[in-house]
Design a protein around this nucleic acid. Sequence first.
DNA 1: CGAGGGTTTGAAGTGCATCAAATAGTGTGG
DNA 2: CCACACTATTTGATGCACTTCAAACCCTCG
Lengths: 242, 242
Amino acid sequence: MNEQNIIDALAKTNLFRHCDQHVLKTLAQKTSIKNLNKGNVLFVNKDEAALFYVIVSGWVKLFRETLDGAQAVVDILPAEHTFGESSIFENNQYPYTAETAEPSTLLAIPLELLKNELQNNSNMALSMLSSMAEYRKQQDKELEHRTIQNAPQRIGCFLLRLIDQNAKGSITIHLPYDKTLVAARLGMQPETFSRALSKLKTAVGLDVKGASIHIKNIQDLSSYACSACTSAFPCKDLQTEK
Amino acid sequence: MNEQNIIDALAKTNLFRHCDQHVLKTLAQKTSIKNLNKGNVLFVNKDEAALFYVIVSGWVKLFRETLDGAQAVVDILPAEHTFGESSIFENNQYPYTAETAEPSTLLAIPLELLKNELQNNSNMALSMLSSMAEYRKQQDKELEHRTIQNAPQRIGCFLLRLIDQNAKGSITIHLPYDKTLVAARLGMQPETFSRALSKLKTAVGLDVKGASIHIKNIQDLSSYACSACTSAFPCKDLQTEK
DNA sequence: CGAGGGTTTGAAGTGCATCAAATAGTGTGG
DNA sequence: CCACACTATTTGATGCACTTCAAACCCTCG
């Protein structure tokens, strides 16, 4: 990856979408590139924060743990997302642990640079504001889903969010990471995930072969899953992939 | 309430804490004051947004509903909090319905003013950013709690957040709104709340008389509730009241 | 005093978690 | 290319937590 690649990668994120080239260039010069395997811990909850990250490819799991080992998955982020930048507003402590969930390429950028940019460039603050607002909306929906949707519906909703919004009829998708991890992401046990997926399978017509899932009829799936939601498919603002 | 009262009320919010007096004055001049009873709907989810609100006193419930009437309570906010301002970043649509949960005094302010201020005053953007970051952290914890804590623990955690952080030993508190509403806020049924509260009562020693609850030993309560949480009492960042 | 909402209690059902074990799938070294 | 080791996933059996439906109780307020 050369400097231009980095700049391009930055420009794809919500955070830097509207930034001038020269700002991106400044950032890119201090950026380091990480090619990582699955299961690599980037930082730990409550660590002193010095860097934030941009996901170029792969998936990163954000989570926290209790003393007795229970784990709460905060989110699992795909390419073009950033994480760790919010620690600017959290006394420079990371608010979660971050670990690669799949082999991933990341960019690591000093938080100081972002801080400076926020101070000196009012557009940067607006960008961050809008990117944070969008993220917040998603998390907000997440909480709603935990409240009103049952396990099969949450899985259905998750599948729909993997689909291109314009898709119609039938389509085949691939789970982007382990089923165990999808389960955690949706706040359920692996066993529950497995059973809930078979329930969904018979309810709306799916063919499941390992990580690949063929949806026979998107409409059926969405009317099953979205009936217990306050917004309906295609719920544009909640796409996992942009 | 005169103009100075309004300015003082604005200055207590996270959003405007760091604003100059003259900015607050401009806002105050376009602000209207609402004294409302319980159960008053301020706006409905997906309405076109024109105003945002500041809570001077009382409590406001934010929620969304599905087609079949299921309700997801997003939050219940106390004095000194603002709501509706995020619709700036949501295509000018309110992302939830807002309704007073108790008799309340509110300030209504045109979103346009805030937008302008965001454009012209880079400190405003930073303020909003930091206030949004804090709110996001709280919602994030909320999701964690739904995942790891059971019903009695969630209630315990809720009680602890009503307490002054410096309190030690024993203390009496009053539920700020209906038990039914507390239940909804914590994502459980009223019946579950009632039963979970009695379980908590015997487990950590509470005296419950209607809405007033005497906690015999804060330490016992926090070790009961916070054992299933990734942060421990006093979890400074999660106080309901500031 | 009576009406109506808030709250509690009881009984029964459902969904998810847990524990245990079998099965499938993957990568390794021989 | 196969056997082994290890992990991911599924399946079964059981228990617990929370929900649901129903009814009683309580409290407040007109």
